[in-house]
Amino acid sequence: MMLETVREGLSWACLLSGGFFLVAGGIGMLRLPDFYTRMHPAGVIDTMGAGLILLGLMIQAGFSLVTVKLLLIALFLLFTSPTAVHALAKAARHGGLEPLLVNTEENDE
């Protein structure tokens, strides 16, 4: 009974914080100034947001075939996301898109 409550709580925490990181990543993709900086919040969505939500679902499912499938989805996302992002960055670089290097505001000295 006690264990059940702990599991529910953990699952809750994972799903909610995963949702938080998703929204933060989405906000970042709108706020940041150029393509190369926008790739970083996309990474937040792909790693932390997706990872936490899938982890929450895994805790919910317990030991079963469902967990194995969730694990496969998570592994697949973790392997493809850097590949896709790297391919995008390389294509943008070769396509002549220059990264914005100097920030509009100097925050350190």
């Binding site: 190369y36 900086t37 920030n103 505001e105």
Partner: peptide
């Protein structure tokens, strides 16, 4: 490392002054 970096990026992104300094 991924967890740590995520917290770092999320903080930067949600900060009202957007304290980033992109470099290559």
């Amino acid at each position: 490392q991924i967890v740590r970096a995520n917290l770092h990026v999320t903080y930067r992104v949600l900060h009202p002054r957007l304290p980033i300094s992109p470099e290559v």
